[in-house]
Amino acid sequence: MRWKPNVTVAAIIEREGRFLLVEEHTPEGLRLNNPAGHLEPGESPEQAVVREALEETAHAFTPTGLVGVYLSRFQRPASGEDITYLRLAFAGELGAAEPGRPLDDGIVRTVWMTPDEVRASVDRHRSPLVLRCIEDHLAGQRYPLGLLVTDASVISPRA
């Protein structure tokens, strides 16, 4: 069997010195995460992060740069499940809210936190990448979106 990491995308959203996080139910309890989720078939990473940010925050999101590409491993304590994630983290602009739009299943609420509040809550983070992506963002790490290329065959597969 061939090993395949789970590809995820994350929106790193900063406004007036605070970062937008989501509080979500996980098998490990209530955790904090960047708005994030899995890349789905037929979409580019940029499309995925726009979709995930909307689903988890009820706000539009426009990616403006790639903060980084991260590989991490998570071993679920209760079941022993061993998961490797390949995360593409995007900086961007938060747009308008969609009033009345429900948050994705499992998302309890969105919360704005200062970097110090994020650092002080690491025991509640869904993964070590929550803080790492924010620290890289704060350090000014940005790569052009053109670094990521999604071939047309992904969006419109040949018959």
Rank of each mutant, 00 (worst) to 15 (best):
R2V: 14
K4G: 12
P5I: 02
N6M: 13
N6E: 15
V7G: 04
V7T: 07
T8A: 10
V9S: 01
V9C: 00
V9Y: 04
A10M: 06
I12M: 08
E14F: 10
E14I: 03
E16H: 07
G17R: 12
G17W: 10
R18L: 07
R18S: 09
F19D: 03
L21I: 05
E23M: 03
H25D: 13
H25N: 14
T26C: 05
T26K: 02
P27H: 09
P27K: 08
G29P: 05
L32G: 07
L32C: 07
N34Q: 15
P35G: 14
P35R: 10
A36H: 09
A36K: 12
P41S: 15
P41D: 12
P41V: 13
P41I: 13
E46G: 05
E46C: 10
V49E: 10
E52P: 07
E52M: 08
E55M: 07
E56N: 11
E56I: 02
A58S: 14
T64P: 06
G65P: 01
G65S: 11
G65Q: 09
L66P: 00
L66K: 07
L66H: 02
V69I: 12
Q75I: 15
Q75H: 12
P77W: 00
S79P: 01
G80V: 03
E81R: 02
E81W: 02
I83P: 05
I83R: 07
L86P: 04
L88V: 10
A89I: 00
F90G: 10
F90E: 04
F90I: 01
E93M: 12
L94Y: 04
L94H: 06
G95R: 06
A96V: 10
A97E: 13
E98G: 01
L103W: 00
G106S: 05
I107N: 07
V108Y: 00
V108A: 08
V108P: 02
R109E: 13
T110R: 04
V111G: 03
W112D: 04
M113T: 00
T114S: 15
T114G: 04
D116Y: 00
D116F: 01
E117R: 08
V118D: 02
V118C: 12
R119D: 11
S121Y: 00
V122Y: 12
D123E: 14
D123F: 04
D123I: 04
R124N: 08
R124D: 03
R124C: 00
R124P: 03
R124A: 10
H125D: 11
H125C: 11
R126Y: 10
R126T: 13
P128Q: 11
L129F: 11
H137K: 10
A139F: 00
Q141F: 01
R142I: 09
R142T: 00
Y143R: 13
Y143I: 01
P144W: 05
P144K: 05
L145Y: 02
G146Y: 00
V149E: 15
V149P: 01
V149M: 04
V149C: 09
V154T: 09
I155Q: 08
I155S: 14
I155E: 14
S156H: 06
P157R: 13
R158W: 09
A159R: 14
A159S: 15
